[in-house]
Design a protein around this nucleic acid. Structure first.
Length: 587
DNA sequence: ACGGATGCAACG
DNA sequence: TCGTTGCAT
């Protein structure tokens, strides 16, 4: 007897909302003339008319499929409208669809815990809303439930609902309809209302329900699915999927809906098939720069709009060697701490590439070609809203300018800076930071007083570009401080890097990253001594311990859980990790 | 020249 | 933790 993953506790009402042929709908909204027409969205069109990524129902009825090329679609359906995905920086740009997806998510999230599963798919936990409806305005007769549910099935798409209706009706009106069924019916009603709202506010239609309609069993609706035993479904779809289907058809899903409206990572990439393969590092750099530019823009707006910071930059590539056709060796992925700023990201991505290429080639002298490149920003964390208060305590030299930013919902990146790191804007303007003066009579917050530069240090600081507008922990610590760090190091004021043996267990990750960066650099520019500032990233570890210690205890606590929310609080205390402030030497 | 771009989870 | 793989839309 097969046993599935245990499905715990309470009945839940979980909806799966799917924007079908979403890209087409987005294009139809942009150009209403396309409505009701056979339409498909293609990526690129140079080669065989481009690849289809979404197909309207009208076009589907001609037999147009998503796996087709534009040329093929034309052949099958000569009247088809092919709309191209926007191209920016030489690559497909999906931002239009991403933000359209956000519009929908924003509406759905109003009724329950909402998980953005993909650009056009959402899971919604409607348990609470359904319970509430059952308490407040219970649809008392099964008949009434059915009428509501039927409406929801009909909405949006043209329906040949007669068969469907029969099943749903039979199900809802069956004599043993119980609490769970009513709850589910309420869920259906809520989803129906949501779909109306989505339609009204975005002009998009969506369908809600089960996504796994492979039709092997003639399954079209929940009602159909209910007629199968759990065992039969397991047999057909596998133990886990079968159970999942059986349960979800009854509104029971053990899988929690995650409360997450935003993606967990941002990536952008491009393939270079066949003759387009990249064969020298100049062309790789060119494309990498383009990809990094887009990535930088995206994480920057994520920071500005959502107050989230990405920690890790990863580079993926696909490669082959010139003379070996079926070499199974793969180009290794490489990652490093993510530093904000387009230039930094480009620089780091190229280093990751070079490092990966080095490993890939294993010191062979063969030529190579790259057939795909991608960069990804991951490990994204919220900056807790309270953190903006931290910024009041730590103000850099340009604190006066920062006062003039009441509502910086958007902080544009200044392209003239090559080390831009922005923190969340200051929203609350409650307390004034106390200040002190340095030897030049300039005012600094007490917190930063320990870091208050001498005039010589300040001269160095001024070589660095000024960040206008926002004064932040990031700017001050990550940019300004690194220069001071260099200076102090050369003045012998701080200790030299530790040897690898002396470092604590808690330092290993940091060591790894720093060492990897250094290794990369020395691989590429052998003989060039890596500068410590290159290892700087925005992280708690970057903060001078002296600065942290000066913070009020509650702020210290906040910082501890900030960038890397501690899963096991303080067994490996981050405080000691701050010693990585002095990056360990490479072994 | 594989449907591409993207995102997720699981695994070692 | 990182890097790989596989899978999904």
């Amino acid at each position: 007897m097969p046993v599935a993953r245990p499905e715990p506790q309470e009945p839940r009402v979980i909806a799966h909302v799917d924007m079908d042929c979403f890209y087409v709908q987005v294009e139809q909204r942009r150009n209403p003339a396309l409505r009701g027409q056979p339409t498909a969205v293609v990526q690129y069109n140079d080669w065989k008319g481009g690849g289809l990524i979404a197909v309207s129902y009208e076009a589907r009825s001609f037999g147009v499929k998503r796996s087709m090329r534009g040329d093929e679609a034309k052949r099958v359906c000569p009247g088809i409208n092919l709309v191209q995905v926007p191209v920016a920086r030489g690559k497909a740009d999906l931002n239009l669809y991403r933000s359209a997806g956000s519009e929908v998510v924003a509406i759905l999230a109003s009724k329950g815990k909402c998980e953005r599963a993909s650009i056009d798919e959402v899971y919604l936990d409607l348990t609470d809303a359904a319970k509430q409806m059952l308490l407040q305005s219970p649809p008392d007769s099964p008949e009434e439930i059915f009428m509501e549910a039927a409406k929801s099935n009909i909405l949006g798409l043209p329906s040949d609902a007669s068969e469907k209706e029969k099943n749903v009706r039979a199900w809802l009106c069956r004599p043993d309809a119980d609490y769970e069924d009513k709850l589910l019916a309420c869920g259906a009603i809520i989803v129906a209302q949501l779909r109306v709202r989505v339609l009204e506010e975005t002009q998009f239609t969506c369908s809600a329900g089960i996504a796994h309609n492979k039709d092997d069993l003639g399954v079209e609706t929940i009602g159909d699915l209910l007629s199968f035993t759990e065992e039969k479904l397991q047999e057909q779809y596998g133990v886990n999927t079968g159970t999942w289907l059986w349960k979800i058809a009854r509104g029971i899903s053990g899988e929690e809906v995650e409360d997450r409206l935003l993606p967990k990572s941002h990536g952008c990439g491009k393939t270079f098939p066949g003759p387009k393969a990249l064969k020298n590092s100049a062309s790789v750099k060119g494309w990498l720069d383009q990809l990094c530019e887009e990535l930088s823009e995206r994480i920057q707006s994520d920071l500005n709009q959502n107050k989230r910071i990405a920690q890790t930059l990863t580079l993926h590539a696909r490669a082959s060697k010139a003379n070996e056709r079926d070499s199974t060796k793969k180009f290794p992925s490489k990652s490093c701490p993510l530093r904000y700023g387009t230039g930094k990201i480009q620089e780091d991505a190229m280093k990751l590439f070079e490092s990966g290429l080095h490993d890939f080639l294993e010191s062979q002298n063969t030529g190579w070609s790259i057939t795909s490149l991608s960069v990804t920003a991951s490990k994204i964390f919220d900056i807790p809203s309270g953190t903006s208060s931290i910024l009041r305590y730590i103000k850099g030299p340009s604190s006066a300018a920062s006062q003039a930013i009441p509502d910086s919902s958007s902080v544009p990146e200044d392209p003239s800076l090559d080390n831009n790191v922005y923190a969340t804007p200051i929203h609350e303007e409650k307390c004034e930071p106390s200040t002190s003066e340095n030897e030049d009579g300039e005012r600094y917050s007490d917190i930063s007083a320990k870091q208050c530069p001498t005039s010589e240090e300040k001269r160095i600081s001024k070589k660095l570009p000024e960040v206008k507008g926002t004064s932040s922990i990031l700017k001050f610590l990550s940019r300004g401080q690194s220069a001071l760090h260099e200076k102090r190091k050369s003045d012998g004021l701080i200790c030299s890097p530790q040897g690898p043996g002396s470092s604590s267990e808690a330092n290993k990750a940091e060591e790894h990253n720093v060492a990897a960066q250094r290794a990369d650099r020395s691989n590429i520019n052998s003989g060039t001594e890596p500068s410590a500032s290159n290892a700087w990233m925005f992280n708690v570890e970057d903060i001078d311990p002296a600065v942290v210690e000066e913070l009020p205890p509650e702020i210290q606590r906040e910082i501890q859980g900030w960038i890397r929310p501690s899963k096991q609080p303080s067994t490996k205390r981050r405080g000691s990790t701050i010693s990585s402030y002095f990056p360990p030497a490479r072994s």
